[in-house]
Design a protein around this nucleic acid. Structure first.
Lengths: 113, 113
DNA sequence: GCGTAGTGCTACGTTATTTGTAGCACAGGA
DNA sequence: TCCTGTGCTACAAATAACGTAGCACTACGC
């Protein structure tokens, strides 16, 4: 892969250079805990520690990294005294995600027998 | 659940122990290249190398790992002479994913303008 | 004032995963 | 035979995630 000059993060969202927004989204969401974090925020704000607990006690390092990315993307914001919560855009994202949730249910039923 | 002996992969799908299928799906799809691979297969089968090319020349190691996981989950299968392609279940998955695609389009427009 | 507990966030050494390059065995075509 | 393509693997290096500990800050009770 011909990596750009900056090695730590070439942009807020990897893959955005392709110009295909789905790639940017795929790349942002295709990192460990990203989808999970957004999912756990779906029905109400959570403090950083409550969020960590909800996410199987993921390490604070990744937690903060993912939260930064999600905030940078405009999906999550931090209200002082209220913890993290989804922005309207983030809420829209999770609504778009709902069909996948329903698919997961069907999928598990099919696996179960 | 205590982790099984095999250390390379504790189970086909990390997070399935929670009993919540969405977690299993979130975990399977929340690995690098997984969503991308499924996405690139959306309109037709691809050979392993064509798939690798389509995925920004991802390393064959992860490619094979992800393909194994996707095949194990029943989303992808390999037809000899025809390359990899989505199973009906995999196609169903990608259809459930379409709203996210549309969201990505709206999202990019919002970022651009 | 002091101590305690909560918040968001970071440092750092260890571990796991991903990468890049090279290569394997096999199958078909010339 | 040689060449090309397939699916797939080995292995060292680079990267990302983990786990533990801790920071600065704020709000509370004393």
């Amino acid at each position: 892969m011909p990596k750009p000059a900056t090695k730590t993060r070439q942009s807020a969202v990897r893959g955005s250079r392709t110009g295909r927004p789905i790639m940017a989204l795929l790349d942002l969401l295709g990192r460990r805990w990203t989808l999970r974090i957004a999912w756990e925020l779906r029905d109400g704000p959570l403090t950083s520690r409550a969020l960590r607990t909800a996410c199987d006690d993921a390490s604070p390092t990744v937690m903060q990294a993912r939260l930064s990315e999600l905030r940078e993307a405009g999906f999550v914001e931090l209200l002082s005294g209220d913890g993290y919560h989804l922005t309207p855009l983030g809420r829209e994202l999770m609504e778009s995600f709902l069909p996948l949730h329903h698919f997961a249910e069907r999928w598990s039923r099919r696996l179960a027998g």
